[in-house]
């Protein structure tokens, strides 16, 4: 099935089996293995990528649903030697151990900061009308779709706070 989309700024034409998920298209057909497969069920967040700026579980949508979309993967956020502030903060704060959930965490965190900037409330936001603050509770709540079995959660929160300070 023919699909045209932009991935990390590059236009791509793909003609794949319609059963191919966005995740498997990235991993099996485009060599973009930074997006990880942890469950293939939308339960762990390891496959988080950005579609038109919003975070999605790439395992839960088919490639053919993304005709015309702009997809950003972890490889599009930064590279070794040119890390994004969020990537750099994850390194410094040890926001990972095995590293497998990490690209998903970083894509998720990057989009999450944008959601807060746009004033989106979360389950723990007290005042739904006010601009949410970047508290530990807000970060933890909003990052709970990204599982980490090494359990780097406290360091992930520290990394996000550090990156937010730098980008703010």
């Amino acid at each position: 099935m023919q699909t045209s989309l932009t991935i990390n700024g590059t236009a791509r034409e793909l003609d794949l089996d319609p059963r191919t998920s966005l995740l498997d298209a990235l991993r099996h057909h485009l060599g973009l293995t930074g997006t990880k497969k942890g469950c293939d069920h939308g339960q762990c967040g390891a496959c988080t990528a950005l579609v038109n700026g919003r975070r999605v579980n790439a395992c839960l949508s088919l490639l053919c649903m993304h005709d015309g979309d702009e997809v950003t993967t972890i490889e599009g956020l930064g590279q070794p030697g040119a890390l994004s502030p969020m990537q750099q903060a994850f390194v410094e704060k040890d926001g990972f151990q095995c590293g497998y959930c990490t690209p998903g965490q970083i894509c998720s965190a990057t989009a999450m900061l944008e959601e807060i900037a746009q004033g989106w409330p979360s389950h723990v936001t007290e005042d739904l009308e006010a601009q949410p603050e970047l508290t530990i509770e807000e970060i933890s709540e909003r990052m709970s779709g990204n599982l980490c079995r090494c359990s780097a959660y406290p360091n992930i929160v520290d990394a996000i706070r550090k990156a937010a300070g730098e980008t703010a």
């Binding site: 930074g34 490889e75 590279q79 070794p80 990972f96």
Partner: peptide, 17 residues
């Protein structure tokens, strides 16, 4: 810091599959 950190945070560390 972990020396392999920049690879892990950019998705360029290569796992089995």
């Amino acid at each position: 810091d972990r020396p392999e950190g920049p690879l892990k945070v950019t998705g360029t560390a290569t796992y089995a599959d």
